[in-house]
């Protein structure tokens, strides 16, 4: 492997561009796909690997190629730079998510509380209009304040986000659903919201709640069955 390849891969990742890394397992030659200099069949296999988000070995012609799908990291948008976000952001980041915090209140959303974090100090609806959640984005609201959570959920529901979660008790959530219904969201649409958010692992402390949320997001992303493993 060439160090220049690693540098190019890192540039692609920083730019959030999808790329397939291909390695010939006989002679060690390598490509970043798509590449005009690569055989047509290899380019096609690279694009297919990205579409399926699958990494593995392929026989092309009569050669073995390892093809690694390197899609941009999935994003997690957190509405509310609150206490639980301080546990949730690093945990999600460690799990491979690019975390973006949204909070117009600079007393909460600042670099002292979230060193090095990606922070948007705008109202959640405006922030989400710019961030444009897609099928590789999860959105979780954490503020407990309808003024902040509702516009975030409204925009999330209008997006193709693969996961939408809202922190709050069952009672809070029922009231929230009524308000979102008044905004014109159907019961089917509202069923997309995980509320109370997170898997039921009996979480008590803040990091435990963060863990339950990250676990639920991972399960949604990977299609996990959530059962206890067979003995």
């Amino acid at each position: 492997m060439k160090t220049a390849t690693i540098i190019a891969l890192n540039q692609k990742r920083a730019a959030r561009e999808a790329v397939a890394f291909a390695k010939n397992l006989s002679d060690g030659s390598e490509f970043l796909l798509p590449d005009d200099a690569a055989p047509e069949a290899l380019n096609a296999a690279g694009l297919a690997a990205l579409a399926a988000d699958k990494t593995g070995t392929h026989i092309i012609g009569n050669e073995s190629w390892f093809i690694e799908a390197r899609n941009p990291a999935p994003r997690l948008i957190l509405v509310g730079a609150v206490h639980i976000a301080q546990a949730l952001a690093p945990l999600a980041s460690m799990s491979g998510f690019e975390v973006i915090l949204v909070d117009p209140r600079q007393g909460f959303g600042n670099q002292d509380r979230f060193p090095g974090a990606s922070m948007v100090n705008e109202w959640p609806d405006e922030a989400l209009d710019v961030l444009k959640p897609d099928t590789r984005t999860a959105v979780v609201t954490l503020t407990h304040d309808p003024k902040l959570d509702d516009p975030g959920l409204d925009r999330a529901l209008k997006s193709t986000a693969f996961y939408i979660g809202a922190l709050g008790s069952r009672k809070t959530h029922a009231a929230r659903l009524e308000r979102l219904t008044a905004l014109g969201h159907t019961p089917e649409a509202l069923a997309r919201i995980r509320g109370p958010v997170g898997l039921d692992i009996g979480a008590v402390t803040t990091p435990e709640i963060a863990l339950s949320i990250v676990a639920e997001i991972v399960a949604a992303r990977r299609g996990g069955s959530l059962g206890t493993r067979a003995k």
Binding site: M1, T3, I6, I7, L9, N10, K23, L25, G56, T57, F66, E68, S93, M94, G96
Partner: peptide
Amino acid sequence: IDAEDILSVAAAWHQDGEQVAVATVTE
């Protein structure tokens, strides 16, 4: 640098003048 980003770790060692090998699970 994320904990899974082994290639960047390898590149950093190489940059420091070390000889480095990379092992990849291919199948």
